[in-house]
Design a binder for these strands. Structure first.
Lengths: 188, 188
DNA sequence: ACCTGAACACCGTTCAAGT
DNA sequence: ACCTGAACACCGTTCAAGT
């Protein structure tokens, strides 16, 4: 009662970031404020700063942990076209769960810039399968990632007709696969 | 002196939106606040509300006028591949001038949802040239727009290596053109 | 080590009042 | 018609103080 007035257990980083993510899911980026988050945790707003540098760092934390936890398709030996589609579907599903987080991720790509992350490793693996030369991997993966997040944002902002999104998704994938297939004979 | 204390001429909507755009260009969306904008115009913050409903409406105004003023490639009879590239370049150049505006536009696509706008008409024209069936125009233009804005955001957020953006742009265009070429024989 | 209250410098916006 | 000042309900964050 002396240390933490209204709470039994002490605050944890996990608890902070998971409720923060929930607030973002519910009300967008503007739905998350340090003060609301503190209220949700029955804690003084300033207590949060003992676990997190500032709001930006908190959002960065949310985004990078969520990106790391994303379920990605394993290499099951199926054709690269199918694996690419499965990867895009993974993006797609995650974005529907956490639209606001993806918006932020899209506007702050440096958060997942690390090429060691599973998302990039998975994409690299698939592009190699598709026959892309090694020196084109960075470039092509960047372009594809930008394309797919662009699509997924359009989708979650309600831009696309809701009853058409599945076919729009098919068109997007078909475009990408067709484009990649035509890139086998790249000169550089 | 009685009516407008520190200004000679009365406030105009044009004046408001152009300085607001400049503030966004200089400092991002967070660089634009109603109070800073008013200070920039040497006017009371509340005067703005006489010309604009609220901040959101102001940004919407900025975006839609800028989108309408965008310089788009005319139909010069050149192959659709060249015209598509020219259109993408127009997006690209505009985005470098007004990155914050494009971020907002990308996150609020409803602002340019109207298919009568020149951007859409231009894209439709090029896709028709490429041999796309009429019932695929809406879908394909949506996907391409999402792709290109996605790429352009990645570019303006500094995600792509600065000395590689040109070749990345080429890869993006090549992917799209290749994908479109493979879509001529669509069943539906 | 962890939490807190008061305070600072900001926001967007409403509303009643001025000319 | 156009502009204003005071006020309200919010922000993120610092800092000194508490246990």
């Amino acid at each position: 009662m002396a240390v933490s007035a209204r709470r039994g257990a002490p605050l944890t980083l996990e608890e902070i970031s998971s409720t923060a993510l929930r607030l973002m899911d519910e009300g967008g980026v503007e739905g998350l404020s340090m003060r609301k988050l503190a209220a949700e945790l029955s804690v003084n707003p300033m207590s949060l700063y003992h676990h997190v540098d500032n709001k930006e760092a908190l959002i960065r934390l949310i985004c990078s942990t969520a990106a790391q936890r994303m379920e990605l398709p394993p290499d099951d030996g199926s054709p690269w076209q199918d694996q690419l589609r499965a990867l895009a579907l993974a993006y797609h599903r995650n974005a529907l769960e956490h639209p606001a987080m993806w918006h932020h991720l899209h506007n702050h790509p440096e958060i997942i810039a690390d090429r060691g992350l599973v998302i990039w490793q998975t994409l690299y693996r698939i592009l190699r399968l598709a026959g892309l030369p090694e020196q084109e991997l960075r470039r092509t993966s960047d372009v594809l990632h930008a394309f797919v997040t662009g699509f997924v944002i359009a989708e979650t902002t309600g831009h696309l007709p809701p009853d058409e999104v599945e076919r729009d998704f098919d068109t997007a994938i078909k475009l990408i696969i067709g484009g990649l297939a035509g890139m086998s004979g790249l000169s550089g």
